[in-house]
């Protein structure tokens, strides 16, 4: 019963995603002005040849700070799970 419900749920999700995806066009992004600005001005504004790095560390730096914090928290949590307990 549960197995059949899981299969139906998976098929429904896949169909929903498929309906959403057919509205998108491949090869011609719908909203590009922000990226065009980054590509045109990243060399003159941040001096980096690699536009992805310029976006990652300059334009959207706070994003990267949060990402580094997530990695730090994951390491902290993993260490806490395997800490040496005093009672055993």
């Amino acid at each position: 019963m549960r197995r059949r419900l899981s299969i139906v749920l998976t098929l429904l999700t896949v169909m929903m995603l498929g309906v959403i995806v057919t509205g998108l066009s491949f090869g011609e992004p719908g909203a590009a002005p922000m990226d065009d600005y980054f590509i045109e001005n990243s060399q003159s504004e941040s001096g980096a040849n690699n536009v992805v790095t310029a976006v990652l560390f300059d334009y959207r730096g706070l994003d990267t700070l949060g990402e580094a914090a997530v990695l730090f928290t994951a390491a902290l949590g993993t260490t806490l799970i395997f800490r040496r307990r005093r009672d055993d």
């Binding site: 941040s46 001096g47 980096a48 040849n49 790095t53 310029a54 560390f57 300059d58 990267t64």
Partner: peptide, 10 residues
């Protein structure tokens, strides 16, 4: 020798 703070952050 370009890109300012970006290599330091890298």
């Amino acid at each position: 020798n370009t890109a300012g703070l970006i290599p330091i952050m890298n």
